[in-house]
Design a protein around this nucleic acid. Structure first.
Lengths: 207, 207, 207, 207
DNA sequence: GTCTAATCGAGACGGTACGTCGGGTCTTTGA
DNA sequence: TCAAAGACCCGACGTACCGTCTCGATTAGAC
C-alpha cells in the first residue's frame, strides 16, 4: 500500500490530515535501521520506537515492512539517480550509464536496502510486481532511451530483441550483485559487458 | 568431540546412531511444505510436525531453516540435472544447455524452492556464499566446460573475460527469474541470448 | 464527571451551546451497546460510532466510560422507579417495596447495566462512592421511609441499628444478584427475607 | 481454565513436565502485582515480566487474567481460613465465624484481590459461576455446618429457608464490602447481624 | 454583519496491552 | 547417544482502544 495521494481536485477529506512529519520520521527510521542491522532484525516495533511514533501510524499507511522499506529507499536514494545526458557515441553512453548505476549500487546502505527488497520480492509475488515497476522498470526505460539514441546515430542494429538485450545487460549486474560471487560490479565489468555485446548490437561497418 | 579411537576408517561414535529414516522424513516434509505454502509460513515447528519428528532432531543436524531447505532441494532436484553431452557445435551446445536449465527452472516446485533460497541468501552473507557454491558455481562449471569445448573446436575466441561472459549469460536468466518481469525464460529466450552474444564470442570467420 | 449544568443564575457562556441531541444520542447508544454485548467489549469508539458522534463529544462531557454508563442507565431506568405509597402495615410495605425492586432488577437490560456499574465500582474507589450516592443511597432512603412509617404505626422496634438492618435487607438481594448463585430474587424471596427479619424488628406484642 | 490436574492413574504424559517453579512464580507475581496497583493496570505482560516467565507459560495454563488471579488468591489466602470448632452455643459460633470472616476480609491485599474477582465475575457469567463455587459456596458450607450444629443443640428452628437465611447473613457483609458505604464490617456489625436475626432463627424458649 | 468562542463530526496521532506465533533451548521418558 | 514430546524464555506480530490532537464546519451571543 503506497502512501495515499490527495486527489488532484484538491478536495480535502474531513478529519485531521496526515502528518508529513510523522511520515518522514518513519521513512528515515526505516532507512537508518536497515542500515545498522540485518533487515530481518528490523522489527516494525523498532521502527516505530526509533521514529517515536505509534505502530498504528505505520500500519495505517503501509501494508507491510517491505512496502515501507520500498517507499523509504525510493525516496532516500532510488529516485535520486539523475538522467544521463546523451553524447555522440551511444556505446560510450551505455558504458557510462552502467558505470554510474554500478557505482550507485556499490553504496553499502543502498545495497543493503535493495538486497532486502529483492529478498522480499522472492517471497511475495505481489510485492515482486511492485518492485519491478519501481526499480527494474525504471532502469529498463533508461536503457531504452540509450537504444533509441543509438538507432538515431545509426550505431545500433534495429533488428534485435530489445527486451532480451536489456535483460542481458542488467542481468550481468544483478547476477554479480545477488549470486554471492566475489567478482565486482565495477567500471571494468561495465566496459567488459559492453565489449562483449557490441558486436551483436552494432550495425555492420562495411555497409 | 571425536572419539578417541585410532582407526581413521570405520570410526563409529558411541550411542544410538543417526536415523536415516528421520533424516529423509525431515527433508521430504521440508520440500512438501515449501511447495504448498509460502516459504515464510513454513515454520520449523510445522516441518517437525509434518515429519512426525521432534524439533530437536532438526536443530541437531541443521543450523537454520535455510540450511535445511538447501539440503532438501539439493537432494530433491538441484543435483538431478544430468550433464550435457557435447556435440560438434559449441554454440548449439550452449543454447541446448540453457534451454535445459530454463526448462528445469520452469518447474513450479523447484522455482519456489530456489526463490526461497535466493531470498535467504540476500539476508545472510554466509548463506549467500554457501548457496553460490552449491548452485551458481555448479552452473558456472557447466558453462566453462562448453567454453573449453568451443575453444577446441576453434569456434570461440580465447581473449574474452570468461567470468564476465558466464555472468552475462546466466544473468539473463536470473534477471527474468528474479526481477518480476513477465517475459518468459523459454527456448526462444535462450536462442536470443546466444544470438546476441555470438558475434562477440566467435572467432572471426575470414581469418 | 457528571454532565455540566448551566449555573442556576442563568449565566450563558459564549460560544456554541451544547447539543441536547448529541447528548441523547450518546446516552442512547451507550444503553443500546451495553445491552447487546459485554460491557467490556463496548468501546468509547463504538459508542461514538453508534451515536454518529465524534469521540471528543464524549470525552468533553464524561470522564470515563463508567461515568457515561452510569448517567445513561440513571436516565434510562434507574430513576424510573416510582415511590411507594405507604399502607397501614409497614411489614407489608416493606415486602412490597422489595418485590418491586427485585422485579425491576430482573429486567435483563437493567441487570446488565447495573452489573457493569458494580464491576467498575470494585475497580475504582472514587466511582464506588459515586455509585453509592446514585444507586445504593437512594434505596436506603426508601427503606428508611418505611422504617419511619413502621415506627409511627408502632410496628417496628426503635432500638435497632437502622443501618445494619438496611444493609441486611439489601444485602440479601445483592448477594443473590452478584454472587452467581442460581437462587432467584423473586417475590417468594422477598417474603422470606421479611419473614426471617420480622421477629427481630417488631415490637413485642404482649407489652 | 484452571490448572490441569494429573490423572489419578499416575500416568505420566510424554514430554517435558510442567515446571512447579514456574507455576509458583506466576501465582506469586500475580498476587504481588494485584497488591501494588489497580487490578486493571496489572497486565499479563507485567505478570510475566515480574515472574521472569514467558507470556506463553501463562496462556498455556490459564485462560484469562481472572482465572489466574482466582487461582493465585485461592492458594495465597482464600483456602487458608481454618475451620471453626463448634462450641455449646450455636449463636456464639455464628457470631464468631462471621467475625473471623470479616477480619479476614479486612486484610487489604485479600480485599483487593476479592474485589477484582467480584468485578470480573460481573462481566463474565462463566467466571461468575466459577467464583461462586470457589468462594461463595465454601462459605455457605461453613454456615450450613453451624446451622446443623444449632439444630442438634435445639437452638435453631428447623422450619426456616436455609438458603435465604445464609444469603441474608452473607449479604450483610457483601453489601458493606461492595456497595461503597463507609460503615465497617467489624465485630460489632457481626454481633448486630446475629442480634437482628436471632429472634427469627431461634426456637421459642417457653415451649 | 462581522467577530469571538465553544461546539460538532471526523479521523490521525503516540501509546499500551492484547493474545498468538515462531525461534531456539531444555528436560522428561524410552529405545 | 538419539529420538519424540512438549514446556520453557523470548520477542515480534498485527489489532484494538485509549485519550489527545488537529482539521473544516457550524452556531450561538457580542460588538
Amino acid at each position: 500500500m503506497p502512501s495515499h495521494e490527495t486527489a488532484p481536485a484538491e478536495k480535502r477529506s474531513p478529519g485531521r490530515p496526515r502528518s508529513e512529519e510523522t511520515r518522514q520520521a518513519i521513512l528515515d527510521a526505516a532507512v537508518a535501521l536497515v542500515g545498522e542491522r540485518d533487515y530481518r532484525d528490523v522489527s516494525i516495533d523498532a521502527i516505530a520506537a526509533a521514529a517515536k511514533v505509534g505502530k498504528q501510524s505505520i500500519y495505517r499507511w503501509w501494508g507491510s515492512k517491505a512496502d515501507l522499506v520500498l517507499d523509504a529507499f525510493t525516496e532516500h536514494s532510488l529516485s535520486r539517480m539523475p538522467p544521463l545526458v546523451p553524447s555522440s557515441d551511444a556505446f560510450a553512453d551505455l558504458e557510462a550509464d552502467l558505470q554510474r548505476f554500478f557505482a550507485f549500487m556499490r553504496n553499502e546502505l543502498v545495497a543493503k536496502g535493495v538486497r532486502s527488497l529483492i529478498a522480499e520480492a522472492q517471497l511475495d509475488a505481489e510485492f515482486r510486481a511492485n518492485l519491478y515497476e519501481r526499480v527494474h522498470h525504471v532502469r529498463c526505460i533508461a536503457l531504452r532511451r540509450i537504444f533509441e539514441h543509438g538507432y538515431k546515430l545509426g550505431q545500433f542494429r534495429t533488428d534485435v530483441d530489445e527486451d532480451a538485450l536489456a535483460h542481458l545487460i542488467h542481468g550481468a549486474f544483478w547476477y554479480r550483485f545477488l549470486s554471492g560471487t566475489e567478482d565486482p560490479y565495477d567500471d571494468a565489468f561495465a566496459r567488459e559487458v559492453v565489449r562483449l555485446l557490441r558486436p551483436g548490437m552494432e550495425t555492420s561497418r562495411h555497409s
